[in-house]
Computed example of a mutant assay.
Amino acid sequence: MDGREDLMSKPFTDVDMIFIPVNLGGDHWVLAQADLRARRMRIYDSLVTFREEKTYLRKFKPLQVVFPQWLQDVGFYNIRPELQSADSWKVRIVKDVPQQEPGSSDCGVFMLMFTMYLMFGLKLDFDSSHGHYFRKKIAVDIFTGDIAL
């Protein structure tokens, strides 16, 4: 056992961080990392060349409102009352993250790799040249059962 099983099998009420895949506009995926203690969303986007900060942040406003309400609705705060707060959630775009090549359609792969690297506490030290390898790795992981669908 390599320790990943424990990390991946915890109920969400026992963790302080939740990773949320977010689709922007139907054809672009980014990762939202919800820090339950800090009440903060960090956004990891592998293609930042098209965005203007203020407009871009507005796209995450619904998540900023809906996610805390969802935590309330599913009874999360009944189990973890110390994390409930009247303070609003903050959204921050993480600036220095690996970037895909424009037109490469690698955003989904990058979103999955951001998730895996952050989940295991690894430095985000990959780049667009790794996209082909990541696609193969994900396919092998699904085939061998390391990733369940």
Rank of each mutant, 00 (worst) to 15 (best):
M1E: 05
M1S: 09
D2V: 08
D2C: 13
G3W: 05
R4T: 07
E5M: 10
D6H: 13
D6M: 09
L7W: 00
M8W: 11
M8T: 14
S9I: 04
S9M: 12
K10A: 12
F12R: 06
F12H: 06
V15I: 08
M17R: 13
F19S: 02
P21L: 00
V22D: 00
N23D: 14
N23L: 09
G25R: 04
G26W: 05
G26E: 04
D27A: 07
H28M: 05
V30E: 02
L31D: 06
A34F: 06
A38F: 01
R40Q: 13
R42Y: 12
R42H: 07
I43H: 03
I43M: 03
D45A: 02
L47D: 08
L47P: 01
V48S: 14
V48C: 11
V48H: 12
T49E: 08
F50C: 13
R51N: 08
E52N: 12
K54M: 08
Y56V: 02
Y56K: 10
Y56H: 15
L57H: 06
L57C: 06
F60W: 14
P62V: 05
L63K: 01
V66D: 12
V66Y: 04
V66L: 14
F67E: 02
F67Y: 15
P68Q: 01
Q69P: 00
W70M: 11
W70C: 08
L71M: 15
Q72S: 09
V74L: 08
N78M: 09
N78I: 00
I79M: 06
I79T: 10
R80M: 04
L83K: 11
L83A: 06
L83D: 13
L83R: 12
D87M: 07
S88A: 15
W89E: 02
K90G: 04
R92C: 14
V94R: 03
K95Q: 12
D96T: 10
D96P: 02
G103L: 05
S104E: 00
S105N: 15
S105Y: 12
F110W: 04
M111A: 13
M111F: 03
M111I: 01
M111P: 05
F114T: 01
F114Q: 00
T115R: 03
Y117F: 15
L118Y: 00
L118I: 01
L118K: 10
L118V: 03
L122I: 04
L122R: 10
L122T: 00
K123T: 12
K123H: 10
D125Y: 00
D125T: 02
F126V: 04
F126G: 07
F126T: 08
S128P: 00
S128F: 10
S129F: 08
H130W: 13
G131Q: 08
H132L: 12
H132F: 11
F134H: 06
F134I: 10
F134N: 01
R135A: 07
R135E: 08
R135M: 03
K137R: 10
K137Y: 11
K137W: 09
I138K: 03
A139G: 05
D141M: 15
D141A: 15
D141L: 14
I142G: 03
I142L: 15
I142W: 06
F143V: 03
F143A: 10
G145H: 05
G145A: 07
I147E: 08
I147D: 07
A148W: 07
A148C: 14
A148Q: 14
A148Y: 09
A148M: 13
